[in-house]
Design a protein around this nucleic acid. Structure first.
Lengths: 336, 336
DNA sequence: CTGAAAGCGCTAACAG
DNA sequence: CTGTTAGCGCTTTCAG
């Protein structure tokens, strides 16, 4: 059995309170006893039981994170950022997959509650009224990651999706493209769907460029077939010269489709993605994309949650982190 | 504050033991009280505190998983498999990144110990004597995932790496290739390095094919630059007709390098990878590869760990799961 | 400075 | 069937 504080006390011939003290307030113990205790701890390789401690302190130094699907490469760096920040701040991460499913989400929130996590990192999905209600009820600190809520006062960390999409389209327009297509997420997705679509529309309007519904193809973010989307878009708008996709994964799927159909990128069609996942650096051709600072988003989110947990003042409720355009080889200039 | 069992007891006008009973042995409580308690629980939205329970049961229903680097796409499906199995069996997963660093690993093992996880999933890295010693000392159930140990009696789940590599080379040979190169992990990596290299050697020998040291380029798995590796191999062995890489990520990096240097795949050079990560389905060209059942490995590992935790008989200590070759577009037949 | 005792939230005998 | 009591491992008054 694992040694407990009792075993240490017995071995060091002191009371358990003294053992507790050398761990929590070493200065209040006389040196002679302190060394005896320290030796006993060393000999038994004693480590305090975090459950017992958590019961008293009401802190578990554990954070719960919900993610739609960890297989999506987008989350790899976010989690890495969270992990590094957590290690630094002394937290462990319980990671859960929701598949964007309400029941799974609620089930995990319940687990978090029972396990007394100190806070929750909620990723990507929108916050619906009943989600908010549940979160309120649980009464645990939350920060939204790569998503946010305008209706509710919930802290969040994300980029400016509308502006980012606008910048992508503006880049294409500045490169001489006029007939631009987009593979977008469903507009029902208020975070990655609607906003990026709006950025597209704003840029097109601003430059007085016409576009029809056929220029855009909508798909479900968490249940999509990039190939099918690419095919659909091409049937509807075969003469676009550039396509903006709402994610790099879509862009890579699109390029794969184009390659199969002997359409060259960027000679025949320029492609610009969104996210800048690792893969976009080794795709063929290398992908031009809107880069999100995924690692920083994850890192910052944990810091922000930590601040909330510690009751520190949290200056900005809805944090916007900068995006940037990374120009690689999948887009080209069109000289009229 | 969160409601406790006391609050429920008070509201239902029974003792806390009765409340405890309706949760753990409902049949031993008379209906009238039971409904009163259930109503109180419902009204207060009471959920038992897992810390308190864990303290008594000495079970936390939490598993610790260590992974070299979660950004590596290889782990995405493994974790997904673990996640699904965990949900099914009632576990939560604490996921940690070690960067294959001893100190980080030991630090996390320590956290696992303090947090009283029920078991540990140890991924990919070899088990060194001091790791084993530490694992022994902690005295927690462990299962090795995509790695194993011949020296120690540790349960594991993985494919037969040597045979898998052999199959890859055999496939190339059967396709008419004679001058075959390999980008391998360092031989100091006894799991993914040495074994796959040995599979390569065995196949070449078996078919009486000559190969020199120049046909192989070794790199560090967790700190590599696929480009540099590709370049190095090409300088040393420019006339290979096919290359086997120890991972899909290496293969994709290699194809990117080849594309930049106007070497066509598979027309000029065939490429076969290892793993079958998602990306290999959308690479250009689509990658021929040795498929590991990552999801199953993760899933099975959790089941196996659960069996150990529950003290069930665990038939096979070192489980080997089947691999298969997935032929796509990055390899071609050579007709002499 | 230090030990005894109470208590964190819950379960498990043990009487009744 | 059910309430009382004694812990699980640890921290924290409270005397001394």
């Amino acid at each position: 059995m694992k040694p407990t504080i009792k075993d240490v006390a017995k071995l060091a011939n002191v009371s358990i309170s003294t053992v507790s003290r050398v761990m929590n307030a070493p200065d209040t113990v006389v040196k002679s006893k302190k060394t005896r205790v320290l030796d006993a701890i060393e000999e038994l390789k004693y480590k305090p039981n975090a459950l017992a401690r958590g019961l008293i302190y009401k802190k578990t130094h554990t954070l719960g994170v919900v993610i739609p699907d960890i297989r999506n490469a987008y989350y790899a760096d976010i989690i890495r950022g969270m992990e590094d920040a957590s290690k630094k701040l002394g937290y462990s991460l319980i990671i859960c997959n929701t598949d964007s499913d309400r029941n799974r989400l609620f089930s995990y929130l319940n687990t978090f509650y029972e396990k007394q996590v100190d806070g929750i990192l909620y990723t990507s999905n929108p916050i619906y009224p009943d989600y908010y209600k549940e979160l309120q009820r649980l009464n645990m600190p939350v920060v939204l990651v790569s998503t946010h809520s305008m209706e509710y006062e919930l802290p969040s960390v994300k980029i400016d999706d509308e502006q980012a999409a606008y910048d992508a389209i503006k880049f294409l327009i500045d490169s001489g493209h006029r007939n631009i297509g987009m593979i977008s997420f469903d507009l029902s997705d208020s975070i990655a769907g609607m906003t990026r679509y709006q950025g597209f529309v704003r840029a097109m309007r601003e430059y007085n460029l016409e576009f029809s519904k056929d220029n855009i193809c909508f798909i479900n973010e968490f249940d999509h077939d990039p190939y099918a989307a690419a095919e659909e878009l091409f049937k509807k708008a075969p003469d676009v010269t550039a396509i903006f996709t709402a994610s790099d994964i879509l862009a890579i799927g699109l390029m794969s489709y184009l390659h199969e159909n002997k359409i060259r990128v960027p000679e025949d069609i320029s492609v610009i993605g969104f996210d800048n996942i690792r893969m976009s650096r080794t795709s063929i051709p290398k992908l031009t994309t809107i880069a999100q600072p995924m690692y920083d988003i994850g890192h910052r989110a944990v810091e922000k949650l930590h601040a909330r947990i510690s009751g520190e003042e949290d200056d900005i409720l809805r944090e916007i982190v900068p995006h940037e355009i990374v120009v690689r080889a999948s887009t080209r200039l069109i000289v009229p």
